[in-house]
């Protein structure tokens, strides 16, 4: 994958995956990615060179998301799982629908800051230092948020499994 254009397509694909997990909505995810890409393009057109595109894209997406959430438009209203279910095509080799639902629900129940850190590190593979720089927070804050997110997610998923077993 040496072609820069192909690498960029791959980066955008990764960004869409991250945005989907972050926002919990395919529509909102693509809105976020679109606005982030518009900002990156505007910066590049001013003549700036961005060599660390990977980190830069996520950094812009983080700032964009924070701003989008602050807007009073209600564009980021909570979507029900039924909505999510309709929006997300599930492939045959994805985990069982119930398991996916449990994960999606547990993720969305996490506080925003914890969800962001967990996704950047657990899903996107950023180092603690990179995530700290990207979010403009100290590395200790990243580790603290990550720890709380992991514990909360674990409890939520364990609770779901227990509930499912009882229902069966």
């Amino acid at each position: 994958m040496g072609d820069p254009a192909e690498r960029l397509i791959e980066e955008v694909r990764g960004l869409r995956r991250y945005a989907l997990a972050l926002t919990g909505s395919a529509t909102d995810a693509d809105d976020l990615v679109q606005e982030s890409l518009q900002r990156v393009l505007a910066v590049l057109r001013k003549g700036a060179k961005v060599n660390n595109l990977h980190g830069y894209l996520y950094s812009v997406a983080h700032n964009t998301w924070m701003e989008q959430r602050a807007r009073p438009s209600g564009a980021f209203a909570h979507l029900s799982l039924e909505d999510l279910d309709l929006q997300l095509p599930l492939a045959a080799n994805q985990p069982a629908r119930a398991e996916w639902h449990a994960m999606a629900q547990a993720l969305q129940a996490l506080p925003r800051e914890q969800r962001e850190v967990l996704l950047l590190i657990g899903l996107e593979g950023f180092s603690y230092k990179e995530a700290a720089a990207l979010l403009s927070v100290p590395i200790g804050t990243v580790m603290s948020r990550l720890s709380r997110a992991r514990v909360a997610l674990r409890h939520a998923l364990d609770g779901k499994r227990t509930h499912q077993r009882r229902a069966q």
Binding site: R13, Q94, P95, L123
Partner: peptide, 16 residues
């Protein structure tokens, strides 16, 4: 397992 589940749930290959 959490990490694996995250990856399998939000794999970019399954995006529209």
């Amino acid at each position: 397992t959490q990490n694996r589940l995250l990856h399998s749930s939000f794999s970019a290959r399954h995006l529209p």
